[in-house]
Design a binder for these strands. Structure first.
Lengths: 224, 224
DNA sequence: GTCATGATTTTTGTATACGATAAGGTTGAC
DNA sequence: GTCAACCTTATCGTATACAAAAATCATGAC
């Protein structure tokens, strides 16, 4: 039997590169509108153009870059409007997750939610924005999973990831951490009580407010 | 100046092949679980393996095939559960489209909906299932567009396309055409009246029933 | 000085070549 | 006869090569 010693090496090189490029785009190494050069990226990653191109395919499919035939690939310039639209959809998806979770959640699931929420609270009390940000992500993913709908879970996670950079920036707004935390508490309690409509409503608002905050931050930026 | 006589040729060959393969998978040329052979497909389309592989990347990303490293690509076997999950998400997305459309729709938009709905009715009265199927698709896409949220429109269209083969099979159930048509009428009226909650509810049910019908068809199949 | 036309260069898209890995068959031991 | 180790073969993943198209630059007309 052939054992695979390192599971992370199980993916092809182009897969890994796609992941790296995605992170780099999301974290801002490549500015929106920037062109991704096959040759230089190939050199940088010590591979030929082939894996780079395969990585591009994936990025294009997930909407991070656009491919212009015979022109090249460019980091997609998401306008503020597009991002607000994405937040609107995210709010609805999370709302659905909450509604389904409230109906389907078991006692064990609720305990899990409470546990991760406690970690969020600890992070907030320590004023550790990074940790809160991370735990907040875990909380939301847990919620997606507890919708009981695997497909929904994946779609929600995909959009969540896509909105990552825009969600992060508004966490630094004064008072947002506490507000977010309070909303988490209410959401968990609604789910625990099996109150599906309320869980749905709370989650929609919880995410929609992120869109509004994003809008707020954007409108106070010098230029975009 | 080099004119491009055929706009459809503007896309790269691998794009076209991805499209063709997608259609062939959705229409059943390749059965679920079947392996897609690079070499033979390359020969068939008179290209090298490169465009075929690029097409595979897209198909994999959109979830139609799975790539097993060093093994090949296989048509994804969507279990009935997965498909039902997708219908559940589709119902929610369409519901959101309807809610937003009811709030945002202009008189012109409502007239458009009524017009395409009339075409649906004509197709039903002529008992032309194929035409109804097609016009029904136009109706739903129009609805996605009238959500006023471009991103939502795209996501809804994507999932709609993915569910295409499963939606089609249940149109042949006795009485489904009339039922579907009646639901359309009610939906348009709710939007025209600006009744967002009702439009949302009607659309969720309209799509959810498709999932149920799919389930019904599946459970009466010999084996799957 | 500006604009259009043509040559050069760059870069994309596809083909081909090659190394690596997994599947399948064959041989041999027990 | 069965199982295991090895070898062969097929296929994947990546590198390289080449052709076509677009971008850039230069030249020249007005």
């Amino acid at each position: 039997m052939t054992l695979n010693m390192n599971p992370s090496d199980d993916r092809s090189r182009s897969d890994q590169i796609a992941q790296i490029l995605e992170d780099q785009i999301l974290t801002g190494r490549f500015a929106p509108g920037a062109r991704l050069d096959e040759a230089s990226l190939a050199e940088e990653h010590r591979v030929s153009r082939t894996p780079i191109r395969e990585a591009f395919q994936r990025l294009a499919q997930s909407g991070l870059v656009v491919q212009q035939p015979r022109r090249g690939v460019f980091v997609r310039t998401s306008s503020a409007v597009e991002i607000l639209e994405m937040f609107e959809v995210m709010a609805e998806l999370e709302s659905v997750c909450g509604r389904l979770a409230a109906r389907r959640a078991t006692d064990a699931a609720i305990a899990e939610l409470r546990a991760i929420n406690a970690e969020c609270r600890a992070a907030r009390e320590a004023n550790d924005v990074d940790l809160y940000y991370q735990k907040n992500g875990v909380f939301h993913h847990l919620l997606y999973a507890q919708s009981g709908n695997r497909f929904l879970e994946q779609e929600a996670a995909r959009l969540h990831r896509r909105l990552k950079p825009y969600r992060r920036m508004q966490l630094f707004l004064r008072g947002r951490l506490k507000q977010s935390m309070d909303e988490h508490e209410a959401i968990v309690e609604a789910i625990a009580a099996g109150d599906a409509p309320r869980a749905a409503e709370l989650l929609r608002d919880h995410v929609a407010v992120q869109g509004e905050k994003f809008h707020h931050v954007m409108s106070h930026l010098p230029d975009a």
